[in-house]
């Protein structure tokens, strides 16, 4: 399973300060640590980035890829910042992933960017009407988004469906709805649709000491249903991801499998 390292987020103070000061040091240090811990892609979350978003995303992508040979997940609601990131992205390390579009018409221009730059894109299964109630509603939105993606010329194998993980502390039922949605999404196409989650949202608002426990067990269940990728902290979930991949027969077992 693909781990998309989540630690380069504007929400973290150290990262925010580095972004403001354009200080490469902390950004590259965190990106490198996530790569070494098992991330296969690095999420660059610059927030809404209404002012100077283009320059910031461009700086993030080049700063990370200067040292880390991985593709970048471009995480912002600012479409022109995404485009700026796509322009400088080094595809030698893999294709970028846009985070994200949704079934809200305001987010459709993102699909245009994905098609234009041959990028992969995350599709959040939410529309204008607010949060989906259950797995079935998520799948219905997913189907609409798939049609939209094809309309814009984005191949379905480049679309990662995201069922939107909610906090277990406030929306306990949704934990199960999301697991079911992962299964249902795959059935929408042959070959199966790719899926992604923002994993740590499950434990958002929970005491610090139980967050890794919730994240890891939840990941196991999602992987059992065939999850393709998770935006998560590789330091926390790499052992779970590797172990479930072995149990599910997706990697060949060897005594040293955790070291690979």
């Amino acid at each position: 399973m693909l781990i998309i390292g989540e630690k380069l987020s504007i929400i973290a103070k150290r990262v925010r300060d580095a972004m403001l000061k354009k200080d490469k040091g902390p950004i590259q240090e965190i990106a490198t640590a996530q790569w070494k811990a098992g991330a296969g892609m690095i999420d660059a979350n610059i927030g809404p980035a209404e002012d100077g978003g283009e320059a910031l995303m461009e700086w993030m992508v080049t700063t990370i890829q200067e040292l880390v040979p991985l593709p970048i997940c471009l995480d912002t609601t600012n479409a022109s910042a995404i485009e700026a990131g796509l322009k400088v992205h080094n595809n030698e390390w893999g294709r970028p992933l846009i985070n994200s579009t949704s079934n809200d018409p305001e987010r459709f221009p993102i699909l245009e960017l994905a098609a234009k730059y041959n990028s992969q894109v995350i599709g959040l299964t939410v529309g204008k009407g607010g949060l989906p109630a259950d797995a079935e509603e998520r799948a219905a939105i997913a189907a609409e988004m798939m049609a939209r993606a094809m309309e814009y010329g984005v191949p379905l194998e480049d679309l990662y469906l995201d069922p939107l993980v909610l906090q277990i502390a406030t929306s306990q039922d949704h934990a199960r709805h999301v697991i079911k949605a992962i299964k249902m999404f795959q059935e929408l196409n042959d070959p199966p649709m790719k899926t992604v989650v923002g994993l740590s949202n499950i434990s958002n608002g929970c005491p610090k000491n139980i967050r890794p426990i919730l994240n890891s067990y939840y990941l196991s269940l999602l992987m059992y249903e065939g999850l393709t990728a998770a935006i998560a902290d590789p330091h926390e979930v790499a052992v779970t991801a590797k172990t479930i991949d072995v149990i599910m027969g997706r990697t060949l077992y060897a005594h040293s499998y955790l070291e690979m």
Binding site: L252, Y253, A254, H255, S256, E259, M260
Partner: peptide, 9 residues
């Protein structure tokens, strides 16, 4: 096969 992989590792 598993020992083969392990030896390569």
């Amino acid at each position: 096969i598993n020992l083969s992989k392990q030896l390569n590792i």
